[in-house]
Design a protein around this nucleic acid. Sequence first.
DNA 1: TTCCAAATGAAAGGGTTTTTCAATTGGCCG
DNA 2: CGGCCAATTGAAAAACCCTTTCATTTGGAA
Lengths: 133, 133
Amino acid sequence: MAQGLRAHGYKLTAQRLAVLQVMQEGNELLTPAEVLDRGRKIHSRLGMTTVYRTLELLRELGFVRRVHGAEGCRAYAQAREQDGHHLVCQACRRVVDFPCSGLNELIEQTARRTGFSVESHLLELAGLCPACQ
Amino acid sequence: MAQGLRAHGYKLTAQRLAVLQVMQEGNELLTPAEVLDRGRKIHSRLGMTTVYRTLELLRELGFVRRVHGAEGCRAYAQAREQDGHHLVCQACRRVVDFPCSGLNELIEQTARRTGFSVESHLLELAGLCPACQ
DNA sequence: TTCCAAATGAAAGGGTTTTTCAATTGGCCG
DNA sequence: CGGCCAATTGAAAAACCCTTTCATTTGGAA
Ligand SMILES: [Mn+2]
Ligand SMILES: [Mn+2]
Ligand SMILES: [Zn+2]
Ligand SMILES: [Zn+2]
């Protein structure tokens, strides 16, 4: 996945590798402040600005996805599934991916009924993971 | 809809009526700042704090819904459809509602596969309205 | 009317995100 | 290998957004 950065012409800096590692290690939802905390344990010289920039970069490359849950509106989680969505545990913030399938019918029907062209969608599920139920 | 406030035991203040009217008049996405601007034309003595409080109140009562679109993460739009979702025009910010049907299968399948219990979901569509296409 | 809990908003507080810009550095090239 | 330079970084400041506080006002019941 670090190779993905190279492949897109981005430099492999210690800061980016630290953020990358943080996002790959856990499977919880992480705020930028939490990514900074964890990232500094890997590379002590890491600034908040870089965390913000790197998370957005990883998002553009499809390595992480942003989550707009109840728990604040800016959080990130690893994107395991290509073109998938997140299901978040409300208790422990664990995240799992699920594939985006079964939405097409709803989207097409809505487009037909409203005359809109649908360009993108945002779907998130929240609930309780097996351990927290 | 003002009656809805009364029915739930809330006072009918000029401020609440102004916010209510603003949300009912247009069919665009509105940020709290925009609601304040428009609301002040109806009731000049209206504060930002009250706008925030009233929008959240109207949301709890189901009269408006919050939208987490690309265009900032806090915006509100009138909820015409009970238990529906929003489809937003990326160009002019016009909003239409659509009913939430056809998601159950996806949700149940995801719950089964992950072991999570799904308590809530967030779904938004974005695209271009007929006029903007 | 009188009365009071509910409602309001100005001001202050607090946290988050972005901008700026001088210093640093990854990686290409000779 | 060095040298070079555009890309990258981060400290500081600015901008932004939202919430809390609390003295004052007010809707509506009695
Ligand atoms: Mn999808
Ligand atoms: Mn729904
Ligand atoms: Zn859990
Ligand atoms: Zn439009």
